[in-house]
C-alpha cells in the first residue's frame, strides 16, 4: 500500500497532516498477526498523524480488535512493526507503551469493577503517581470530571455498578489520565443505546479537537464518518480501502456494506 496522501480535516478541527507530522504519529507497517495457527491479519499498513482522528471500519471478525491489540502491546504480531513518534514500539510491553504515550480503551471496556470510579481514574494515571507523584494529576482528574460530569457524580460508586455507557466513559477517562498522545478506541459504541453512543462520540470529537490523535474502530461507520477525517476499511485481515470520510461515505460499496443503505 502506498503512503497515501493524508487529507486535511473537513471542519478544521483536526490539524492538517504533513509528512513531518507523521513523524510524530503512528506508523504501522506489514502487520501479520493472529492467535497460534489462526492468522487474522495479513500485512496491514496504517498511519495516524499527530492530532489526526482516523477510523478503522470493518465488520465483526475482520481483525479490528486484533490490530488494536497489536498496537497496544497485548498481542505480539508474527511480523511487522509498530512505530510511534519516531520510536519503534514493536517489542514493548503494553505497560511500557503507555509510557510512550499510547493508550487503548479496550473492547468491552474492562473497568476495574471492584474499585470506585475515582480509583479507576487514578489507576489510569498510575505511571504518573508511582514512583513519583506528578502534581498535575489532580488537575487532569478535574478535567476528566468536567468532560464527564456523570463520572463526578458517581465518583465513589464501584465501577461494576455503573451502566454500560458510564463504564465506557470511565474507560475513556481512565485512558486519558495517562496523558496519551494517541488514543486507541476499540468499538466505543458496542452494546450502547443510540443516545449514549451520541454522547460518547461527542466526547471523542471534543478530545480530538483538543489535539489528541485518535484511532478508533467501528462496525457501523455512520457515526465514525462524522467524527474522523479519514478511514481505513479492514476486511479479512487486509486494508481494502482507504480515504477521507467524504470519499468513503460516497463509495457505493462502502455504503452497502457499512452504512446499511
Amino acid at each position: 500500500m502506498p503512503d497515501a496522501a493524508i487529507a486535511p480535516a473537513p471542519e478544521g478541527a483536526v490539524p492538517a497532516s504533513t509528512a513531518a507530522s507523521l513523524g510524530d504519529g503512528l506508523v504501522v507497517r506489514g502487520i501479520h498477526a493472529g492467535y497460534g495457527e489462526m492468522r487474522v491479519l495479513h500485512g496491514v499498513d496504517i498511519e495516524v498523524a499527530a492530532g489526526e482522528a482516523v477510523c478503522l471500519i470493518g465488520a465483526n471478525g475482520m481483525g479490528k480488535t486484533t490490530l488494536m491489540r497489536c498496537l497496544a502491546g497485548l498481542l505480539r504480531p508474527y511480523e511487522g512493526t509498530v512505530g510511534f513518534a519516531g520510536r519503534n514500539l514493536t517489542g514493548l510491553s503494553a505497560a511500557a507503551r503507555v509510557r510512550e504515550g499510547v493508550a487503548l480503551v479496550p473492547e468491552g471496556r474492562h473497568v476495574f469493577k471492584p474499585m470506585t470510579v475515582q480509583e479507576n481514574l487514578e489507576m489510569g494515571a498510575y505511571k504518573r503517581l508511582w514512583p513519583r507523584r506528578d502534581p498535575k494529576v489532580a488537575a487532569d482528574l478535574a478535567h476528566i470530571y468536567e468532560i464527564f460530569p456523570r463520572l463526578k457524580e458517581r465518583r465513589t460508586s464501584l465501577a461494576g455498578t455503573l451502566s454500560g455507557g458510564e463504564q465506557q466513559m470511565l474507560a475513556i477517562g481512565r485512558a486519558l489520565m495517562s496523558r496519551p498522545r494517541l488514543l486507541l478506541l476499540d468499538e466505543p459504541s458496542m452494546g450502547l443505546a443510540p443516545r449514549v453512543v451520541q454522547e460518547i462520540f461527542a466526547v471523542i470529537r471534543r478530545i480530538s479537537a483538543e489535539g489528541l490523535a485518535i484511532l478508533l474502530t467501528e462496525q457501523n461507520a455512520r457515526m465514525a464518518f462524522r467524527t474522523v477525517s479519514r478511514c481505513y476499511v479492514l476486511s479479512e485481515g487486509q486494508i481494502i480501502s482507504e480515504g477521507t470520510s467524504e470519499k468513503l461515505a460516497a463509495d457505493p460499496a462502502v455504503k452497502a456494506a457499512y452504512l446499511g443503505i
Binding site: 510491553s93 505497560a95 487503548l104 474492562h110 480509583e119 498510575y126 481512565r174 495517562s178
Partner: peptide, 24 residues
C-alpha cells in the same frame, strides 16, 4: 496507597491493569 490500589487493579483485571501501565 497507589501501590495497594494497583495491586487491587491487577487482581480485578490484569489486562486492563497492563493497559494503564501497571507492570503485572
Amino acid at each position: 496507597t497507589v501501590l495497594g490500589k494497583a495491586l487491587r487493579a491487577v487482581s480485578a483485571d490484569p489486562q486492563a491493569a497492563s493497559l494503564v501501565g501497571i507492570p503485572s
